Lab assay of single mutants.
Amino acid sequence: TQTTHELTIPNNLIGCIIGRQGANINEIRQMSGAQIKIANPVEGSSGRQVTITGSAASISLAQYLINARLSSE
């Protein structure tokens, strides 16, 4: 079954999640098997909405990979 998880990434950290020309986010997508959508910046908001869709296992793996990127910054 597909589930969806949403999280907010601070604007100053979204770059390390996306990577150069989307390299990091594509790697996270491939490794986790989850669909990951990053919302466009919202004016006045300090973060970007990230939506992860997939199986429970792929979502938790995607979250783990995202958190690993954030903590390495």
Rank of each mutant, 00 (worst) to 15 (best):
Ala23Arg: 14
Ser45Phe: 12
Gln21Pro: 03
Ser46Val: 07
Pro10Ala: 08
Asn67Ser: 11
Ala34Lys: 00
Val42Ser: 11
Cys16Thr: 15
Leu70Cys: 14
Val50Gly: 01
Ile14Gly: 00
Asn12Leu: 05
Gln63Val: 11
Ile28Thr: 07
Ile28Tyr: 02
Ile14Thr: 07
Leu70Val: 10
Gly44His: 05
Glu6Phe: 09
Asn67Trp: 07
Ile66His: 15
Gln21Cys: 05
Ser71Asn: 11
Asn67Ile: 07
Leu7Ala: 03
Gln21Lys: 14
Gly19Arg: 02
Gln2Phe: 14
Ser46Trp: 08
Ser55Asn: 11
Asn11Pro: 05
Asn40Trp: 03
Ile18Asn: 08
Arg48Cys: 08
Ser72Ala: 11
Arg20Cys: 11
Gly44Tyr: 14
Asn40Arg: 12
Ile52Tyr: 00
Asn40Tyr: 07
Leu7Trp: 06
Arg29Asn: 13
Asn40Val: 06
Gln35Asn: 14
Arg29Ser: 10
Leu7Gly: 03
Ala23Cys: 13
Ile36Met: 02
Arg29Leu: 04
Ser55Lys: 06
Thr53Lys: 14
Ser32Ile: 00
Asn67Pro: 01
Gln63Cys: 10
Ile38Ser: 01
Ala57Pro: 11
Ala62Ser: 03
Thr1Gln: 03
Ala62Val: 04
Asn11Lys: 07
Ile14Pro: 02
Arg69Glu: 04
Gln30Met: 08
Ala39Ser: 13
Ile28Trp: 04
Gly15Cys: 05
Asn40Cys: 09
Tyr64His: 14
Arg69Thr: 10
Thr53Glu: 10
Ala57Thr: 08
Gln30Leu: 07
Thr4Asp: 05
Gln49Trp: 02
Thr1Gly: 11
Thr51Arg: 10
Arg20Tyr: 13
Gly15Gln: 07
Arg69Trp: 03
Glu43Met: 13
Arg69Met: 04
Gln2Met: 14
Pro10Ser: 06
Lys37His: 06
Asn24Ile: 10
Ile18Arg: 02
Ala62Gln: 01
Ala57Glu: 14
Met31Tyr: 10
Ser55Pro: 09
Gln2Ala: 07
Ile38Lys: 02
Lys37Phe: 04
Val50Phe: 02
Ile18Thr: 06
Ile25Lys: 01
Ile59Ala: 11
Ser55Asp: 08
Ser72Asp: 09
Ile59His: 05
Ala68Val: 07
Arg20Leu: 11
Thr51Ser: 11
Ile52Ala: 02
Thr53Gly: 05
Ala62Asn: 01
Gly19Glu: 04
Asn12Ser: 11
Gly22Arg: 06
Gly19Gln: 03
Ser58Cys: 06
Thr3Cys: 12
Ile66Met: 09
Ile25Glu: 03
Ile52Met: 06
Asn26Pro: 02
Ser32Tyr: 03
Ile38Leu: 09
Gln49Ser: 12
Leu7Pro: 00
Gln2Lys: 14
Ile14Ala: 06
Ala34Glu: 00
Gln63Ala: 10
Cys16Gly: 08
Leu61Ile: 12
Ser58Gly: 06
Ala34Phe: 04
Ile14Tyr: 00
Ile38Gly: 02
Ile38Glu: 02
Ser72Phe: 07
Ser60Val: 05
Gly44Asp: 09
Thr3Pro: 07
Arg20Phe: 14
Ile14Val: 08
Ser45Gly: 05
Pro10Met: 01
Gln21Val: 01
His5Lys: 14
Ile59Ser: 05
Glu27Cys: 07
Gly47Trp: 10
Ser45Thr: 13
Pro10Val: 02
Gln2Val: 12
Ala68Lys: 15
Met31Asp: 05
Ile52Leu: 11
Ala57Gly: 08
Asn40Leu: 07
Ser58Phe: 08
Arg20Ser: 09
Ser71Phe: 07
Ile66Gln: 00
Leu61Ser: 14
Ile17Met: 03
Ile52Pro: 02
Thr51Trp: 10
Ala62Gly: 02
Ile17Val: 09
Gln21Ser: 09
Ala23Ile: 08
Ile25Val: 05
Ile9Phe: 14
Glu6Lys: 14
Glu43Cys: 07
Ser55Leu: 01
Ser71Arg: 10
Ser32Gln: 05
Ile9Gln: 01
Ala68Ile: 05
Arg48Thr: 08
Ile18Ser: 04
Ile59Gln: 04
Met31Thr: 10
Ser58Glu: 13
Asn26Ala: 12
Ile9Asn: 01
Asn26Ser: 12
Met31Trp: 05
Gly19Trp: 01
Glu43Phe: 07
Val42Trp: 03
Met31Pro: 00
Arg69Phe: 15
Arg69Gly: 02
Leu65Lys: 04
Arg48Tyr: 13
Arg20Pro: 15
Arg69Cys: 05
Ile28His: 00
